[in-house]
Design a protein around this nucleic acid. Structure first.
Lengths: 192, 192
DNA sequence: AAAAAGCATTGATTTGGATCAAGGTTCTTT
DNA sequence: AAAGAACCTTGATCCAAATCAATGCTTTTT
């Protein structure tokens, strides 16, 4: 049930059986049906969720009620509103299951205790956030420097598995485009 | 000479005198004159730099030789091409001093040794990267969700000290605008 | 002190992507 | 199996920001 989570953890910081067992006592498991919400904007985000199975998206809604996807979470990824989680402020993002999903849940108290008592958990956390930072920096650079067409192509080659599982208009939203524009971009590409 | 660096470090993880002395042996100091480069695109980024004094910018150059500022680094901030630093790949960013600057330099070997031997340094690193991640997430959300005018206003109120010290066309670059557009935005705002 | 480089502004024009609108599929739900 | 959502595409029009171009103002350099 926690298979992928521990595989991930072990790939970054080698753990003994005892350490794994100890961490397990801090975790809970949660299933979400498609379209269910893990987090609603305005609520305080109480957990970090590791995706064992399924797919989720984190998105914000602007003044014109347009949705903007800030992150997808597929198997092996972690999803949360980290700012809300860390500060206790109301969340600015919604998190919704795009498929029936299974999540390993780390509560705030579990996270804090693990950080203080298990150096390897802190290392794991550091490596995770570093990876997330680098991914986002790459995304921001590409938003500012590349044409829309390049950005779509880059997305497809970087995340082919997402492109296959997620409706096209959500990829448009992730890239900061309207669905119409993405449709035309794809037409232009395929006619080459 | 390392005053601000240790002030920062201490504010996040309380250190003893001995610990500070120990860390100091890993650090070096570097001065940069205005317009000098700390890093050139294509070279491998060998250091993390903490800004004790002065101001720098990290920027990329796209195919049309337009510059895109990914980050400013003023007093108290850390600046680097983290991806290059961590992987050893050639840097995609340039880092240039915008004013005469003084930097606390952490080399890769120093960083790695400190991470392995000083838990508090790892905590410091984790907190730093978390802060950088959250700042960038906020920026990305605002890029996707807000009008150009709002984004400029947000920038000004979030980083008033940057706005005062940095030429306007660099703020435009940071916001992903041309200098002309920013000039017109400002005119529009001031005429309200 | 003069020359040059860098910077901000303003105007005219172009353009890439948004918006508005409608049609046809394909998936869900009942 | 039928009804209804959700989704993708295509067309017409509009608009915000980019581009091109020129001028004057500062700051740097010599």
């Amino acid at each position: 049930m926690y298979y992928l989570f521990f595989q991930h953890l072990n790939s970054k910081v080698q753990l003994t059986e005892e350490e794994q067992a100890q961490i397990k006592t801090y975790l809970t498991f949660k299933k979400l049906r498609k379209k269910q919400y893990l987090l609603q904007e305005g609520d305080v985000c109480k957990v970090i969720a590791f995706v064992e199975k399924g797919a989720l998206r984190a998105f914000s809604v602007d003044d014109n009620s347009n949705e903007h996807i800030i992150q997808f979470g597929l198997e092996g990824w972690t999803i949360s509103d980290l700012y809300s989680f860390l500060t206790g402020e109301p969340a600015t993002y919604n998190i919704e299951a795009l498929e029936d999903s299974e999540l390993v849940i780390i509560s705030k108290s579990a996270h804090e205790e693990l950080l203080q008592t298990m150096p390897k958990y802190e290392t794991f956390t550091r490596l995770n956030i570093t990876g997330a930072y680098l991914a986002m920096q790459r995304r921001l650079t590409s938003t500012n420097s590349s044409s829309v067409e390049e950005r779509y192509q880059d997305f497809i080659s970087l995340y082919p598995h997402i492109a296959q599982r997620v409706p096209q208009h959500m990829i448009a939203s992730y890239l900061g485009l309207t669905p119409e524009t993405l449709s035309r971009i794809r037409k232009r590409i395929s006619s080459k």
